[in-house]
Amino acid sequence: MVEARGLSKRFGDHVALEGLDLALPRGEIFGLLGPNGAGKSTTLNLFMGFLQPSAGTARIAGLDCARDARAVMGLVGHLPEEPALFENLTGRELVSFVLSMRGDDRPARWSEVAACAERLSFTRELDQLIAGYSMGMRKKLALVTALAHDPAVLLLDEPTNGLDPVVAREVRAMLEERAARGVTVVLSTHLLDVAQRVCHRLGVLVQGRLRAIGDAGEVCVQAGGVATLEEAFLALTAAG
């Protein structure tokens, strides 16, 4: 469903991503781990078609992410790390705008939006002006807009950052349910326990290269046979 072959991105002399190979089937939750500047967001932006790859290809559902960006965006729900929202709208108006722009403003979508907001404890705030939102509320709204059109693929940058533990757990549960329905989820995160708990497989990016890939156990083995994911992360980062 989500596929990368030799995917590379350079900014001038700086190598942001180098030769990434990845193949994620339907229903997989894949976690991208790595220190700051490792290339996690670059990878997501390449899949979204925001960036043109310097080499290699990124594909979603067989579509080239750079060339067929518009079609890809129709399939994907995207959560940027720091969502910039339109301050003068209410949450509901923004969701309505996003759904209309996607050409799918059916009542079925709205019942899903309502359910989603309910689970995120966000129903009341949905009718307030975004300008007054806190960081956590912005995150929740961005999540709702990313999930509203029932996308086949989710690309999420730090989905649980800034959320309280109860809501964060609910988000994890929602991701697992969607994965069970066949949605492929790619999430980038710093939080190792989140990654370990929710992701089927993990990839550790260090300085633009994929150092390890597999479930938590496999990553530990690839890191030199350490006992925990944290030790693996530290070992891989130090080696890089």
Partner: peptide, 12 residues
């Protein structure tokens, strides 16, 4: 408006 990630992620 057209430069926000939210808008860029829409199929336009």
């Amino acid at each position: 408006l057209f430069d926000t990630l939210l808008f860029r992620a829409l199929p336009v």
